[in-house]
Design a protein around this nucleic acid. Structure first.
Lengths: 146, 146
DNA sequence: ACTTGACCTCAACATATGTTCAACCGGCAG
DNA sequence: CTGCCGGTTGAACATATGTTGAGGTCAAGT
């Protein structure tokens, strides 16, 4: 039985198509390809052809940036997505994204609370020997293997 | 009745002091002053003198950046702080910050949900005439009244 | 054949967020 | 007095996130 060869994931959308669908400038579409947020094939005339997930990835990336993720972090997150992601794949990514946003909000809340509690790290008018900031409330946050 | 003149809010901390307390580079301290996150007086030798709120402002700014606020937005938020902020002033700022982080997380969640619901804006394999994205899930977000 | 429009690349520019460096000043210890 | 230490400035550099523009290609329409 000759199944039709899987069509290499119909990459049929042009830069302009994706730009319109995602509501960003074409330059941004090329930028997101360069940084790995989206991927493209090339057609006979060397033009980029995106699959239908591209506009979606960009929209999601924009939302993720809004809660503090870098383009690099977003590309890493999307790296797990299969080509032609299914609804459940998007669901998983969405969940990870929300979880990360909540992690950061929780950290914000916890560190602010720590700063206001006990020793009153803010408004420490007097010498109270500054209880050391807990790990996790220092500005570290790993900068990645890559 | 001669009350002692209010001591201009003891601005006694040097760039180095603040950098050490906030755990950032001295260059960052100058940067934050330039952008209005912290403010300084000058001493006789033209050196910056910060009040005790400076390291705190910087620490809070770092946390806020982590959830997606820009330095500009943070400076605007701090603009409401009185000189020599009290615990309650910090409490208010902290609450606004957490509220903003939550607003953004909620928007993330809502827009992701919208994208996955009904028309399946992602994975729209077929022509389903793309229900328009709701306002609020477009990348607008006002860019400031100078 | 010519024009048009959308694409291509690559470089320059622009803004945000910092760091580094050179050149200089001022106080304090030896 | 002489260093050194830490402060000052301004400029240059660096990275992230894009935009703009010059110069070229390619297919479609007239």
């Amino acid at each position: 039985m000759s199944h039709a060869v899987i069509p290499a994931l119909e990459a049929v959308f042009t830069v302009g198509d994706v730009a319109r669908d995602a509501d960003v400038a074409p330059s941004a579409v090329r930028f997101y390809e360069k940084t790995g947020v989206i991927t493209a094939q090339r057609d006979g005339g060397n033009q980029r052809r995106f699959d239908e997930s591209a506009p979606c990835r960009i929209k999601v990336a924009k939302l993720a940036q809004r809660v503090g993720l870098t383009v690099r972090e977003i590309a890493d997150l999307f790296a797990d997505l299969p080509p032609d992601p299914r609804s459940q794949d998007w669901g998983r990514v969405a969940a990870e994204l929300v979880a990360e946003a909540e992690r950061r909000t929780a950290e914000l809340r916890a560190c602010l609370a720590e700063m206001q509690s006990g020793g009153r790290l803010c408004e420490s008018v007097d010498r109270i020997p500054e209880p050391p900031t807990s790990p996790g409330c220092r500005g570290d946050h790993v900068r990645s293997s890559g």
